[in-house]
């Protein structure tokens, strides 16, 4: 698998929180050849049983969330315009005049507007409309609009991906399809290897609205070790340096009171041993990733977190560097392949 290609494919699939089916189907299809069994759980997460552990050895759960932030139709007005609410954290400052796709009976194109557009000058141009003030113009009569769209339909920003200089990739929903790509790649890298550990993979729903998929999926997977793969901030000049990693400098190994210290340490040791670039991301408590939910699902699991540095999180132009995904996959591979007696049960 070429992770860049894979990311662009996954980014092209739709999967706003709570409506992940299109991306779930694609992921299930890709991982199936490497698995014993692939199932969709009651909330819609993809739970793949990749291989069982040998007697006395642990099974590790690899998790990446497949949902993306977006919007949800709440109302269709008497002129055929749509009102929407946000699904997950949507940056309202970039919504004006964005092209969107309303995932109705069929894909319906639209443009986001906030009255009064373009008469505004000076002061008004500094204002950011609230979600409540926004409408989506789909160019339809109210009758036609109601035929095509129902309240509850999801809306995504129409943002085709692009390849930038230095192999960097601009792709919507890279949070966390970049993580999904890294997990898929890790599973592929491990496919022909001999080792005693078992592997499950969870592509979870509804992370962006409160890690809900990981709560249920983590319970059902019932593993002793859970590794969440998500994205974190890559430095740009408008962001505080101390909160950011750097793009292209490898996976960010999470260190936190809520993560298992021996796992963080093991990641660092393996990265050094195998010459895999890495950076540290130290947090003071919960990590705002699925690691928080996975650690306390069911009887609890030892938890680790790897984050892929990403610019412009929660915008339609998220940027990542494929080398960071590949290196994340490599580090996951070494962690599992070389686990040996560590964490034996």
């Amino acid at each position: 698998m070429d992770v860049a290609e894979l990311l662009l494919t996954l980014s092209g699939c739709t999967g706003v929180s709570g409506a992940e089916q299109p991306v779930a189907e694609r992921i299930a299809e890709i991982i199936k050849p490497f698995c014993q069994r692939v199932e969709i759980d009651p909330l819609g997460s993809v739970l793949a049983s990749v291989r069982p552990a040998k007697e006395g050895y642990p099974t590790v759960l690899l998790d990446a969330h497949m949902d993306e932030v977006g919007m949800i139709v709440t109302y269709i007005d008497d002129k055929g315009f749509l009102k929407v609410g946000n699904c997950g954290g949507v940056d309202r400052r970039l919504l004006l005049a964005q092209r969107v796709i309303v995932h109705g009976k069929e894909p319906v194109y639209g443009v986001i507007a906030a009255p009064p557009p373009h008469l505004s000058t000076g002061e008004e141009r500094k204002k950011v409309p609230s979600m409540d003030e926004l409408v989506i113009d789909i160019g339809c009569s109210p009758e036609r609009a109601r035929e095509l769209v129902r309240p509850g339909d999801r809306v995504t920003i129409d943002a085709p991906g692009a390849r930038l200089l230095n192999d960097r990739i601009c792709a919507k929903a890279s949070d966390d399809r970049a993580g999904v790509a890294a997990v898929l790649r890790a599973v592929e890298l491990l496919d022909k290897e001999e080792f005693p550990w078992g592997i499950k993979a969870l592509f979870s729903v509804q992370e962006e609205v409160g890690e809900r998929g990981a709560k249920a999926g983590g319970f059902a997977a019932d593993c002793d070790i859970a590794l969440a793969v998500d994205v974190s901030f890559a430095l740009t000049s408008d962001a505080p340096e101390h909160k950011c990693g750097r793009m292209g400098e490898g996976p960010m190994i999470g260190i936190s009171p809520t993560l298992t210290a021996s796992i963080s340490d093991r990641f660092v040791a393996l990265a050094k041993e195998h010459d895999i670039p890495y950076q540290l991301e130290v947090m003071a408590g919960e990590t705002s990733t699925n690691a928080d939910a996975l650690g306390v699902a069911g009887k609890g699991a030892k938890t680790g977190l790897l984050s892929i540095p990403l610019r412009y999180m929660h915008t339609p132009v998220e940027v990542t560097e494929p080398a960071d995904m590949e290196n994340t996959a490599r580090l996951l591979k070494e962690f599992i392949k070389e686990g040996g007696e560590l964490y034996a049960v």
């Binding site: 400052r93 970039l94 601009c170 339609p316 132009v317």
Partner: peptide, 25 residues
């Protein structure tokens, strides 16, 4: 407000670029 969060085309060679922002977090 209508350029943030979008791809643009740079120069005659149509190099893709993006106008991003630090994460809302």
């Amino acid at each position: 407000r209508v350029v943030l969060g979008r791809t643009v085309s740079v120069g005659e060679q149509k190099l893709p670029g993006v106008l991003g922002t630090k994460a809302m977090h």
